[in-house]
Design a protein around this nucleic acid. Structure first.
Lengths: 210, 210
DNA sequence: ATTTGTATCCGTATTTATACGGATATTTCT
DNA sequence: AGAAATATCCGTATAAATACGGATACAAAT
């Protein structure tokens, strides 16, 4: 049997080491690299490191999971990313799938599912855990993927809102009218499917957007 | 040498298993139990399970880390909790220390520090990692811990605010006048030293109060 | 070259939130 | 029993946010 060459990318050292120890028990899986952020990962890949699968955390410093997915895709290197995240949020899952992820697991998956997923993805199958699939289906049925991805400006505005700036203050800071900011606010609320600032900030922090 | 009996409490299975695998290598540490939430942990302890140390995640479903700390203290069982968290927020760390935690580590600590911390805490010492200590000192110097502790009612109101309920809705739900809720809001904002809902929710989620 | 996404702006009306500055009952603790 | 914390309520005013329903200009992508 061929060995599955695997890279772990996660900024939590304990998780990374733990995962490595856990996977050691499985003879068909070999960890060829373990990195703490996306830049490190891309560096390694650009230096010619080869692997079959990357276990990829979405929230890392410097270069997050999405950027990594994009980077990996552009390499054309036949490396299959499996996203491992804390959160199951519809538009993130969909975005990952769209960006070339072969799997999406939560950090509360159990060992057997993780190993199962790795082996399946290695064979070219995709693996999204039950909870994730359900979320994704719910999400797909109500929203089109592109619809609720925030634009750069909206993300910027959201950041300022979360810092406690009012619409007026944000408008002044960005040299645009308050109307514009209001429109952004409305649009953000709609995309997040929430009805006010409180809910918005909560949801945004939940998915680590702030 | 005596074996250090240890319990792991974390809702992320992969992290739990990984941690277990990692600690297996150290002969002086023995994992006697591994649980996914606070209720499970307290059940085990109440059924007579004995341990020296609990590695405790702060954010768990059903019963969070704070409640667990309180519960453990009331047992009088000489079990020393070490908090392992994703976040380093002053308020939070201080609260843990006050509530009887013997240590506070971030999930990005490395293996050697984890083991070092476990052994030290076992000997009765306290272990707060460098980053944590720094945060705590900063916090202590600017804030008195007790001054900005929310009352139960305020916590309840805060929870409802974070769910997106308006003042009016909260008032209706709790059978009090909107004035009362407004007063609570004002008081909460003051205690958090923030000026509006957006900032409030952000800060509150940062310290996992919601 | 046409579609798609992004950023910009406008008006009107209603609802919420925040800022003042009090006061009184009820628990809870000492 | 008395102090302290907690929860409750009131009035007035301004500031801010949300809900409608549009429109134009430009850049990027296919």
């Amino acid at each position: 049997m061929n060995e599955i060459k695997l890279i772990i990318a996660d900024d939590h050292e304990l998780f990374r080491i733990g995962l490595a120890e856990l996977l050691k028990k499985h003879d068909d899986i070999k960890i060829v690299k373990s990195v703490a952020d996306g830049v490190e990962l891309m560096d390694a890949l650009n230096s010619g490191l080869n692997a079959d699968i990357v276990l990829l955390d979405l929230t890392m410093p410097n270069m997050d999971g999405f950027q990594v997915l994009k980077g990996i895709k552009s390499l054309n290197a036949n490396i299959k990313p499996i996203v491992i995240s804390m959160h199951s949020v519809g538009n993130y899952i969909a975005k990952c799938a769209k960006m070339g992820a072969y799997g999406y697991l939560l950090k509360n998956t159990d060992e057997s599912e993780l190993v199962f997923a790795i082996r399946n993805v290695y064979k070219g199958k995709k693996h999204f855990s039950a909870e994730i699939s359900e979320k994704m289906i719910n999400f797909m049925s109500t929203q089109s993927v592109s619809e609720n991805v925030l634009s750069r400006k909206e993300i910027e505005v959201l950041g300022l809102i979360s810092k406690g700036l009012t619409t007026k203050e944000i408008a002044a800071k960005l040299f645009v009218s308050t109307r514009t900011i209001e429109t952004h606010r409305t649009s953000i609320l709609k995309k997040f499917e929430v009805k006010n600032t409180a809910e918005l900030i909560k949801k945004a922090t939940e998915i680590n957007l702030i």
